Simulated assay, not measured.
Amino acid sequence: MGTKHTRVDDAPDDPDDLLPERSVLSLEEYLEMQAAVGNRTRFEILYRLSHADELTPTELDSVMDVDDSTLHYHLEKLRDVGLIEKRVRTERDSNGLYTYYRPTVLGEVILEHGVEELLRREWDFGEAYDSSAA
Rank of each mutant, 00 (worst) to 15 (best):
M33S: 06
E21L: 08
V81P: 12
K4C: 07
T56I: 11
E28N: 12
H113S: 12
K86S: 07
R48C: 02
Y129N: 13
T90P: 04
E85C: 02
Y100I: 02
V24F: 07
Y100E: 09
E76Q: 13
Q34M: 10
L106Q: 12
E32F: 02
L71D: 09
I84E: 08
A128V: 02
V109I: 14
E112W: 02
E54C: 07
G82K: 04
L83I: 10
A133M: 11
D17E: 15
S62L: 03
N39C: 03
R120P: 00
L49A: 02
V115D: 02
T6Y: 08
A11F: 14
A52F: 06
D124T: 11
M64I: 13
L55E: 11
Y101L: 04
M64R: 10
L27D: 03
G114D: 04
I84M: 08
R102M: 10
D13T: 09
E28T: 15
T6L: 15
V24P: 04
D67Q: 12
P57M: 02
A128M: 10
S69C: 00
G2M: 06
A133N: 12
R92H: 06
D14Q: 03
V88A: 07
V8N: 09
L78E: 05
E44R: 14
T6C: 03
T70C: 01
D124E: 13
